[in-house]
Simulated assay, not measured.
Amino acid sequence: MLPDLFCSAVHSCCVCITWFLLAGRSTAWPTIQWVQRLSSGFQPSSSLQGDQPSIKTSLFTDMPIRSCAVVGSGGILRNSCCGAEIDQADYIFRCNLAPMNYSDDIGTKTNLVTANPSLMIERYSSLMERRKPFMDMIKTYEPAPVLMAAFSFASISDLSFRTYYTLEDFGAKQTVIFYNPIYLANIELYWKNKGLVVRRLSSGLMVVSTALEICDEVTLYGFWPFAEDTDGNPIPHHYYNDRPPKPGVHSMPSEFFLYSQMYSKGILKLKVGKCF
Rank of each mutant, 00 (worst) to 15 (best):
F226I: 12
A98H: 06
L147W: 07
F151A: 00
V146S: 03
T114I: 02
L38G: 11
S40E: 12
S103Y: 02
V272C: 10
K56T: 11
Y190A: 05
G75C: 07
V113L: 03
T219F: 01
L220T: 08
K194D: 07
F134Q: 09
F161N: 07
D229G: 03
L184I: 08
I121K: 14
C81T: 09
A84T: 11
R123F: 05
F20M: 08
P247Y: 06
Q261N: 13
S73N: 13
K274E: 08
D4H: 10
V35G: 06
A69F: 01
P53L: 05
L220D: 05
V15S: 14
I182E: 01
H11R: 11
Q36S: 08
N241G: 10
D51P: 10
R162I: 09
W191T: 01
L212H: 04
I86T: 02
L59S: 06
L112T: 04
I267C: 00
N101E: 10
S103E: 15
M252L: 10
I65W: 04
S118I: 05
D242Q: 01
L212W: 01
L77K: 03
N186V: 09
V197K: 11
D136Q: 14
A172Q: 13
E255M: 06
Y164D: 02
S39V: 08
I86N: 04
P245H: 11
L48V: 10
L205K: 03
S251N: 15
G195L: 04
M252P: 00
I92Q: 02
D104Q: 15
Y164F: 09
I17P: 03
Y102P: 02
N180C: 04
T140P: 00
M128D: 13
F223P: 08
A115Q: 02
K246V: 14
A227S: 12
V197G: 04
V249Q: 13
D104S: 14
F223E: 10
G232C: 07
L268C: 00
F20S: 09
N180R: 03
F60H: 06
G273F: 06
F20C: 04
T61H: 09
I55N: 14
L196N: 02
A69I: 12
R199K: 13
D216K: 15
F178P: 06
I55C: 14
K274W: 00
G171E: 09
Y102A: 12
H237N: 11
N180P: 05
V71K: 08
A149W: 02
F42D: 03
I156S: 13
Y183V: 00
G273W: 06
P145H: 01
M120L: 09
Y91Q: 02
L212V: 06
M252N: 00
D90N: 14
V208W: 00
E228T: 14
D105K: 02
S157A: 09
M148I: 15
Q88K: 14
Q52G: 10
M120K: 00
G83M: 05
V10C: 06
V10T: 06
L167I: 07
L196F: 05
S40I: 11
F60A: 03
Y91R: 07
S125Q: 14
R25C: 12
S47M: 02
T166N: 12
L159F: 10
S157I: 02
I187G: 00
D104A: 15
T210M: 09
G195W: 10
I182P: 00
E168I: 04
Q33E: 11
I106E: 11
P245Q: 11
A185H: 11
S46A: 13
D4I: 03
I235R: 07
A84K: 12
L38K: 15
A150M: 01
A98C: 04
H11M: 10
Y190F: 15
